[in-house]
Each structure stands twice: as structure tokens, then as C-alpha cells.
Computed example of a mutant assay.
Amino acid sequence: MKIEDFDFDLPEELIAQTPLKNRSASRLLVLDRNKEGVEHKTFTDIKEYLKAGDCLVLNDTKVLPARLYGIKKDTGAKIEVLLLHQQESDVWEVLTKPAKKVKIGTELVFGNGELTAVCTGIENHGGRIFKFSYEGIFYEVLDRLGEMPLPPYIKEQLPEKDRYQTVYAKEEGSAAAPTAGLHFTEALLQELKEMGVKIAFITLHVGLGTFRPVSVDTVEDHEMHAEFYHMDEETATLLNEVKADNNRIISVGTTSTRTLETIVRDHGKFIATSGWTDIFIYPPYECKAINGLITNFHLPKSTLIMLISAFAGKEKILAAYKEAVEEKYRFFSFGDAMLIL
């Protein structure tokens, strides 16, 4: 299958540069896989499509202010560092820019020297391994020196760090937000609970896969970067009960989807487990864990549009996206939302 099969025309001005002031004021495009056409709603209308017994699965990962700007200790050259994931104590896998200036043994200094790092390894994909040194608590130092790692297509500065976090973000470790969850407010989640909709949490720390464009011509040749996930006993039990009662599991975002599908693929049901997943979902993959999906609008030829095409069918997705472009929906991280049932 060709990457070009997932291409579509997307005017650059439709890539949202800033978040809406009200999280749940986004537009919502509703696609029913068993019907023709789509419906155009606002995000709070999602209540019309959910019912008692349904279970929303949210990714509670928390984005680190993972972008750091430092200088080389020997030359003073400026180096940008993006933390991807923690390997052990103060050892992290990172991306650097420009990467060619960072070799094993390169020392970097951040801020006024309150944080330093030395490169101890180079990964196959071009990432680097850094050992950090500092006084105090690393996450407090990072909070002072780091910036939110917004995707490269967003040119505007983010006025409030928390606007790139979900309201339920808890487990620190992501290099990017699970953006489908950005539309939920605490008030909306409470309304859904009062309707009888169940809320479950999983964790997947978003890593390099989010920042790597597809660089091959054939879908099957693309390799996903592994990301850490976790499901606890409470969530596993709840999801198995929902399935047993023939109620719907609706994942919020592609990260939740990949976590749920990984666990069911590997174990045949939901269990309490942690691990690394490099699952790559594309047609004709048949989703075994989910019955519905809430997601943002994705970029052409991305692994994300391949995933939703596997769930809803490529033709239906591309037709819905064509209509979304015509209706000037806002795309990607700070954009509008889509409900697929």
C-alpha cells in the first residue's frame, strides 16, 4: 500500500496555530461507519452520541516542558534538545538540533549552568543519549528552563503551558500531548459521568513517533518508534466488564487506541500490564478493542490518518476530510475534533 493513498489537499491556513479559549467550544464532525455522510456539531454535543454504559478511555500522560535550549561548553554553539524518554535516573533519550554538532562526549550547558548534560550515546534513528547533572529536583529545574514541545507546524508561542495539557494529565513523561483529550473540561466530564458514562484511564507516553514523518513510499516499510504504556488493574477490570455487558469502549485519541489494541492483541483481553508498543495500525487492520474513537484532524500521509482509516475505512475518512476542509475545520493539535462510531 502506497503512502500517497493517504494524501489529501490541506490548506496551510487550516492548521490551527492557537487553542480556543474555551476547550469544549471546538467543532465536532461525527462519522457513523454504518451511515452515509457526516454531521457537523460542536464538541459539547458529544453527549448526544454517548449513553449510559459506554466507557471513555483517556490517556492521562502529562507533557514535560521537554524542549531545552543550551550551548556547547567548548564552542558556545547553540543546541536545541528535546527530551523523549527517561532510560534511567538522569539518563534520557533526546533529539538534538543541529544533530551533527552533537557527538559522544559533547557537553552542553543550560540556563546559568544549573543544568548540564553530556552525550553518552547515539541511537540508530539519530537520537542521542544524554546524562544530565543538576542540583535539586530534575523536574523543578526542567519546569524553570524548559518549554512545551509544540509540533514544528505551530509557529505561535503558547501563552499558557497548561493549555497543552489535558485537564486530567497526571503521569509525567510525554514529549507531546494526547491532543484529542484537550477538548474535555472537568465540567463536561462530570456531565458525562452523571449520564452513566464510565471514565477509564490508561497511560501512553508520547515519544519520537509523533515527531517522525513517514519517509518511505510504502506503508508496510514504515517502522514505528516504541512508546511506553501502562494499564492498571482497575481499568482492566472495568473494560472487561464493559465488553462483557456488550457496551461500547470509546477511545479518546490515537494513543489510547494504540494502547488498547496492543493489550488485546497480546493478551486476548484487558489485563493490568506495562510495556513498550510499536504497534502500527493501518488498513486492513481490524480493531478488536474499541467500538468508537474521538480524535483530532490529522495531517496528510501521517500514521494517524492511517490508523483512523483502519477503523472507519479509507474512503469514508478521505471523504469526511474533504468535507472538513471545505467546511474549514481546524486541523491537528489545537484543531477541531471528530467522533467515529
Rank of each mutant, 00 (worst) to 15 (best):
D60F: 00
T18N: 13
C119P: 03
F201C: 07
G313E: 02
E172I: 12
M306A: 05
S26L: 00
P284W: 02
A169S: 15
S309A: 01
E261K: 04
K100V: 12
L145P: 13
V94K: 01
H267T: 06
A169P: 06
S309M: 01
E191S: 10
H205Q: 06
T254K: 06
G275W: 07
I317F: 11
P159Y: 10
G113V: 08
F201R: 13
H230C: 05
S333F: 09
Q190I: 01
G173E: 12
S174R: 00
E36C: 02
A226E: 13
I308H: 01
L293D: 07
N296K: 04
A320V: 08
E36T: 14
T218A: 08
Y168A: 02
A176T: 05
E241A: 11
S26P: 02
Q86P: 01
I137G: 00
E233T: 05
M195T: 07
G53A: 04
L150K: 02
E156S: 14
L341Y: 11
T262C: 10
H222F: 02
L83D: 12
E48A: 06
K103C: 03
R248S: 11
I202A: 06
E171A: 04
P149I: 01
G127K: 03
L142K: 03
E261P: 10
L158S: 02
F334W: 03
A52E: 15
F211C: 04
I122F: 00
R330T: 10
P159K: 14
Q86S: 11
S24N: 14
G127P: 12
T277A: 07
T61Q: 10
E123G: 00
E323T: 14
D217K: 13
Y69L: 14
T262R: 07
L299W: 09
Y329Q: 01
V206C: 12
E323A: 09
G173M: 11
G207I: 13
E114I: 08
E241N: 12
L188T: 09
L307A: 04
T106N: 07
K301P: 10
G127Q: 08
D74S: 14
E107L: 00
M231E: 11
V141I: 15
H205Y: 06
S215Y: 02
T203M: 03
E12D: 15
E327Y: 08
P152D: 05
K100T: 12
Y329E: 01
H85F: 13
T237C: 00
I137T: 07
D278H: 14
K161G: 00
G136C: 06
A319D: 14
A169M: 09
S333A: 07
A180T: 09
I137N: 11
L304K: 05
A226F: 12
M224H: 09
E114R: 05
G76M: 10
Y329D: 01
G121W: 07
G207S: 13
T18G: 00
H183E: 10
T61C: 09
I250C: 08
